[in-house]
Design a protein around this nucleic acid. Structure first.
Length: 242
DNA sequence: ATGCCGGGCGAAGCCCGA
């Protein structure tokens, strides 16, 4: 099974781009019979899971704060042969500027994600937490670390929370397959960022041990950033032997 | 480093993203 994360930065503006990539990523046009689960809201935020197999136990919203109405988390179970793959699509808050309540919200959201991931890991099943984490895990994941030193995506508090999440026992699928530094999933639209490869790696696929055991390959489809009217993010994917 | 891009909303110009 191949799973992927792609922040398309607007469904309306990116549908053609998305469909084109899906066709290439998964073969024939007649295969484009995806089941869709969405969790969205007006103007801001929104996540979805597209699955060729029917989904079960769809859950919308990240537990832990009933007052949080931002659409940033959806989860589903995808039966696969003798096992299942549980998939979550996440859109972790940006958090800038760091002296605002947005940064507090980001850190609190990460605490809630840690709590929920801990619960999901207790099921001891294949699990993939996929999405736009808005976290640059290390200096190897950014073109110009100095420039991002005080940004919510790279602040020590943010990276510490991300390590806390990883240290529950999750595997960064891309890093498990690639050691080299400076492989990115996002390039700003402005200032010729892509031409200068001035990017950051902030979209991640985090796998439970049972999923990591089945990890065959993972990569970033960098070329998608060069298409007409691209998203500023590109797809990241992992192939699991499920 | 930011909002020089790009999108949503709504029909101009502001808000937001990273």
């Amino acid at each position: 099974m191949k799973i992927a994360s792609f922040n398309v930065n607007s469904v309306k503006a990116r549908l053609g781009n998305l469909v084109e990539w899906l066709k290439e990523a998964r073969g024939e046009i007649e295969d484009l019979g995806y089941n869709v689960a969405t969790h969205g809201q007006k103007t801001y935020n929104g996540v979805a899971i597209l699955s060729k197999s029917p989904m079960e136990d769809i859950a919308r919203g990240l537990p832990g704060d009933n007052a949080d109405d931002q659409a940033r988390y959806i989860e589903a179970v995808i039966p696969a042969g003798k096992t299942v793959l549980r998939v979550a699509s996440i859109y972790l808050p940006n958090g800038n500027p760091v002296d605002s309540d947005k940064f507090e919200y980001k850190l609190h959201w990460m605490d809630r994600l840690i709590d929920h991931a801990s619960k999901l890991l207790s099921y001891e099943e294949p699990l993939a937490l996929a999405g736009d984490y808005n976290v640059i895990p290390s200096a190897d994941d950014v073109h110009d670390p100095q420039a991002w030193a005080n940004d919510a995506l790279f602040r020590p508090e943010t990276r510490a929370k991300f390590r806390e999440l990883i240290n529950l026992g999750l595997t960064d699928a891309f890093r498990a397959c690639h050691r080299e530094a400076h492989r990115y999933t996002f390039w700003d639209y402005q200032a010729g960022a892509r031409a200068k490869d001035n990017g950051i790696r902030i979209d991640h696929l985090l796998l439970s041990p049972q999923a990591a055991d089945r990890l065959k390959a993972s990569d970033i489809d960098r070329n998608i950033r060069g298409r007409e009217k691209p998203s500023d993010h590109v797809p990241i994917w992992a192939e699991l032997d499920i």
